[in-house]
Every structure is written in C-alpha cells, then in structure tokens.
C-alpha cells in the first residue's frame, strides 16, 4: 500500500428497515490513488457512496477522512452533505443530476459555491471583493470546462448536451468544489467506446493533478486498466480486495458475477 490513506472506512453498516444494505464494510483510499468499487447490481455500491457523502446516515461504523494538505483527521458520520463536500469529497451521480435549466458554465459555477463566500450585501453592493470573487469563479469554472472539453458549449443549457458530455459535466462540476477525493458513480455508463477512451484519459489526468478517485463502474475493461486497487462487493459485504490482477482470478468474485442469481436492481 502507498503512504497513509486519506479515506478510511471501517465496519460501515447501513440498515433500511429490516434490510441490511451494507454489512461491516472496510475500505481505504490512499492519496492520488484510483480505487474501483465493483459488484453485481444491488450489491450496495451506490448506498455506500450515499453514506460517504452524507445523504444517508449510516447505522454503524466509521468514516474517517484525512486531509492530505493539512493532515487533519475528521469523522464524516452524521455530517450534512454540504459539510462533507466542503471537507474535500465530491461526487457524481449515477442517474445524472445536472441543473438542466442552467447553462453548462453555471453548473460548474455552482460547484464553486462552497469555495466562495459572498452573500446578500456583497451581491447587492457588488464590492470589489465580490466582483473579484465572481470573476475568479467564472475563470476557474471555464478552466475546468476546458479540461473536460466542454468550453465550446459553456453557454448552452446543460440539458442540450449529449449523454457523454453530461457525464463529463458532472465530473467538471464535482472538480469545481476542489476535492481531494472524487467519487465517480458509473462515469462510463451509456458512453460509446470513443467517449469511454476519452474518459480514461480524463480520469488519469485528474489523478495526476493530485486527486484520489474512488469509482463505481461496470465496464470491466475500464476498471482493470485504470485502477490501482479494486474492492468487490456482493450483498452489502466486501468479498475481495486487491490489485486488478488478483481480482481477475479471485474465486469468490467469479462466483459472485457468474455463479449466482443477481439481486434486484437498485444500485
């Protein structure tokens, strides 16, 4: 393993009524690492993301975050989603949740919200500080759009983008929050091979810029080629973890994917 991890999850458990969606899950992500979380549909992967980002309150277990810049440790359980984002964890959504009636650039500018601070008075009086902040927001957002290749469509409505472009915009919006850990929920779903190839390049570029990435993905080729490590889940439990080469030959993983009925699709 690389040096000290930035995310440590231990014993994470999530119950919905009588159903245990996550069962004592342990997971860790190191700095600048690409970690994949795979498993059959309904294994609890998205639930795991929802616990990490504060949308669900986990029933038990610990989620700890260590900021690579400051080394400060914090516990994420019970924090509101916006607080968690502010601490440096950002995510995309499996079923795209863009602000479709806003422009592409505005979507990214929303991501800058938690790194900026002007409020009512600033907005009304348009002080120098506010104007500077606003221009910075625009410029930084634009830079990010250039990075993901959407600067041409900056003033289009988000809903007018193609499917693949919308997924990239979700990544851009998440990047705008300046995360050190980026959670991607099926970033390649619905993409054609060319778009997927571009996505791989983009993810590697993001990693090289210093972000750690935890991703859920069904495209095994992408997972195997990108990931440093892979965690495999089934029925809310972790059934394997290791480097891609190890996972490829893991008996339990093969059994989970091929041997048994798939659970209901609620991922």
């Amino acid at each position: 393993m690389m040096n000290k991890s930035i995310l440590e999850v231990s014993g994470l458990t999530m119950d919905f009524g009588g159903i245990r969606a996550l069962d004592r899950l342990d997971l860790d992500v190191g700095p600048k690492e690409i970690v994949a979380l795979i498993g059959p549909n309904g294994a609890g992967k998205t639930t795991f993301f929802n616990c990490l980002t504060g949308i669900y309150l986990p029933s038990a277990g610990d989620i700890r975050l260590v900021s690579p810049q400051t080394g400060k440790q914090s516990r994420l359980n019970g924090l509101k989603p916006n607080k968690i984002t502010k601490k440096g964890v950002a995510r995309t959504f499996q079923n795209i949740r863009l602000f479709s009636q806003m422009t592409v650039l505005e979507n990214v500018m929303i991501g800058r919200h938690c790194r900026t601070s002007s409020l009512i008075l600033g907005a009304i009086l348009r002080t120098r500080r506010t104007r500077k902040e606003e221009q910075e927001t625009i410029d930084k957002s634009y830079d990010i759009l250039e990075k993901v290749g959407l600067s041409e469509q900056a003033n289009e409505f988000a809903s007018n983008l193609s499917y693949g472009a919308q997924r990239r915009l979700e990544i851009a919006r998440a990047l705008a929050t300046e995360p050190f850990l980026l959670l991607l929920d099926e970033p390649a779903a619905g993409m054609n091979p060319q778009e997927t190839a571009d996505l791989v390049t983009l993810i590697l570029q993001i990693r090289d810029e210093g972000h750690a990435i935890l991703l859920i993905e069904h495209d095994m080729k992408l997972v195997m080629s990108l990931s440093d490590r892979i965690f495999v889940m089934d029925y809310g439990k972790k059934i394997a973890q290791g480097a891609p080469a190890e996972i490829r030959v893991n008996r339990a993983v093969i059994k989970a994917y091929l041997g048994e009925d798939e659970g209901p699709d609620n991922a």
Binding site: T53, N82, Q101, M109, H113, C114, S118, L119, G122, E134
Partner: peptide, 21 residues
C-alpha cells in the same frame, strides 16, 4: 450572484445542490 445561482440550482435539484456544497 452566487446566491442567485444557488437558489436556481436549489429549485432544480436539492440533493445535487447539497452534494455541491
């Protein structure tokens, strides 16, 4: 303004808004 954009975004999708901080 920053606030105005946040309001618009909130009108469209609260969960995505929270996830954006």
């Amino acid at each position: 303004s920053r606030l105005g954009r946040a309001w618009l975004a909130l009108r469209e999708d609260e969960i995505a808004c929270q996830a954006m901080g």
